[in-house]
Amino acid sequence: MNRRSKVLVAAIVVALAQIGFLSSAIYSRAALLRNGEEVTLRTVPVDPHDLLRGDYVALSYDISRIPVDRVRTSRPRDNDVVGAVYVRLKRGENHAPAQIVGVGLGAPLDEPLGANEIDLNGTSFDRWQTGLETLNIRYGLERFYVPEGEGRAIERRLGERSFTIRVAVGKEGDAQIKALYDGDVALYSEPLY
């Protein structure tokens, strides 16, 4: 095999690897949106802008700050970063926002899931301290991209009405935003692909 053929084969292998990686990422996201269990979360959006991807709504949830007394597992030592957080939620009826059942630090709760309950994975970068009252938790659901120029309109309406997000949650607790709602009206829905 000559040098030119080797370069061509190497280029084809690299291109196939890149296509495989991108296809896998797209498929896993679509599978989660299609097959994940749905839960509704109450949001508080603000309107930043990403130069590469456009307008997005930065989201915070009523479950983003959780009282420490909801923790039902062992707690870290003082000054340790909390890390992995597993939040058990009870889904509301008729798409009402989910309510916190309990929180596990470092591991999910031992009890089996109850009726209409779901576990959602998050991360807290807070340092555990004696006297700590709340944990700040990120779920990877803090940005929702919207069409250019529409983020500010959402921000203006925030004070007038209740916004929620419908989220697809997989069996392992990973989550993906499905849709942004203004009351009962779907403003934006994520396409599967």
Rank of each mutant, 00 (worst) to 15 (best):
R152A: 01
G149L: 01
E133Q: 14
A168R: 02
L135P: 00
E172M: 10
V146W: 13
Q129H: 11
L141G: 09
T164G: 06
R156G: 12
R152G: 08
R127L: 07
G173A: 05
F163I: 06
V185W: 09
D184T: 13
E155A: 01
E155F: 02
G131D: 03
R127A: 10
Q176T: 13
V167I: 11
E160A: 06
Q176I: 00
T134V: 10
T130E: 10
V146I: 03
S162C: 01
L132T: 14
Q129C: 08
W128A: 03
Q129L: 07
T130S: 14
D174K: 09
D184N: 08
D174L: 11
G173L: 09
G170H: 04
Q129Y: 05
A175S: 11
K178M: 06
L180T: 15
Y139C: 07
D184F: 13
Y181N: 09
G140C: 09
A153W: 05
R152V: 04
I137M: 01
L180F: 02
E142L: 11
G131A: 11
F144C: 07
E155D: 12
R138V: 15
G159T: 02
D174C: 13
V146T: 12
L141D: 05
D174H: 12
D182Y: 04
Q176D: 12
E160C: 10
A153L: 07
E142M: 08
G131R: 01
L180H: 00
G151L: 06
R156P: 14
R166S: 10
E160D: 00
P147V: 01
R127F: 04
E155L: 04
Q176N: 13
L132N: 06
I165V: 15
E142T: 14
T130D: 05
D184H: 10
V167T: 07
R138T: 14
G170C: 05
G151C: 01
G131N: 07
G149Q: 05
I137Y: 07
V146L: 11
Y145V: 08
T130P: 12
R166C: 12
G159Q: 08
T134Q: 03
A168S: 09
L180P: 08
Y181P: 15
I137L: 01
I137S: 00
T164A: 04
G173S: 06
E148P: 02
L141H: 12
L132Y: 11
A186W: 04
R166Y: 08
T130Y: 14
K171S: 10
R166P: 14
T130L: 04
V185Y: 11
G131L: 00
D174F: 08
I177T: 07
P147W: 12
